[in-house]
Amino acid sequence: MLRIWLAAAVALLSCASLCAATPAEDAYFAARQAAVAKVKAAVDANTKEEVVQKLEESERAELLKQLSALVGPKPQGYERSELSPESLAPDSPGGDALDAVVYAKAEKDPSIAVTTQGVANAWLAAVRADPESQNLNLPSTLPDALKAVNFYSLAIGGDAAFSLHAPIPTSADPSAVALLGAFAQDVGPTAPNALVVSVLRGDLLYVIQAQPAKAPKPSTACQALWKTFEQKAKKAQKAYQASKEKDESQLEAAQKAEAEGEEAWRQCFAKALKPDDLAALGKQADELVKLLP
């Protein structure tokens, strides 16, 4: 996470026309970097864990106030808010997440992450400048990045990766992008568990995450297709183990079979979606957009 925010400092200087940060956003960036530095210094000094935790909670609370002032009114019916990312500690899971105010209710209710386009553009530029993230191939502009699967893995996924099952048609807002997909940590296909809707409105970016109201179960044909690739992966994995983990080509073959199997499963699932399924999910996406101020 510290790596991303060091990159952000450079990115802000090199993308003035794209990021167009306001003085208030510049103040937030400065406070954000100072907070990260304080927490890192405490960790490096082997400070007691409970002391570091209290320091981090205090710094995150101040950053939440500052960012909340930048994003303005709360979404309708939402009172509780938290700061993203969840931690300021170096190398923490999800520590490179997009800075946003995240509004939430109960676990089953939609969550709404809100940030300014200036903050989002600076974060995007920093990710693209980071050598360890360049293989994600994120687009350089925010509207295009919102259509990219890897944006959601890094921005809001925490330590889970986002996989796309199908784009969902929505007409609630000209800028809206709705994606049916799944956040997961495990290898192998995962049934859709998230409907993500992103909206650029004014100078703000909203990312809504909800449980799909209608998510058809994977067909037996799709499951059988995955099993074929899974068997190939297991065979290659056994060969790798038999070589006493020296034959890297077998390990690569296992990983390739798993990746190709997941993609084949997702394509199979998408083809099985019926017009009624897409219409129902599109209606849900439209209703989610109505939650925004």
Rank of each mutant, 00 (worst) to 15 (best):
V51M: 06
G157T: 01
A122I: 11
D203W: 08
A285P: 15
V207K: 02
E49M: 11
E49N: 11
E132Y: 01
V102R: 03
G261F: 11
L13Y: 10
N46S: 03
R128Q: 03
E245F: 08
W5G: 04
L179D: 05
A191F: 09
G157M: 01
D159H: 03
C19Y: 00
A279D: 14
K74D: 09
L18H: 04
E107T: 08
S243C: 09
S84A: 07
K256A: 13
A182M: 09
A254L: 10
V289W: 11
F229P: 12
V52E: 01
D130G: 01
A221F: 08
Y240N: 07
A104M: 04
A224M: 08
Q255W: 06
L136W: 03
A27V: 10
E230H: 14
K232E: 14
L292E: 02
D173Y: 08
V10H: 10
Q250V: 07
S111D: 15
T220V: 14
A194R: 09
Y206P: 07
V114Y: 01
L70T: 00
K234Y: 04
G202E: 07
A122C: 12
E132G: 02
D203G: 15
K217D: 14
D276Q: 15
D99Q: 09
K256W: 13
V187D: 14
W123L: 00
S153R: 04
V197R: 00
T190W: 01
G181W: 07
P110L: 05
G157R: 03
F29H: 11
A89W: 05
L12M: 14
P143W: 10
A97E: 02
A37C: 13
F162H: 06
V177F: 01
Q185L: 07
P218A: 14
G118E: 05
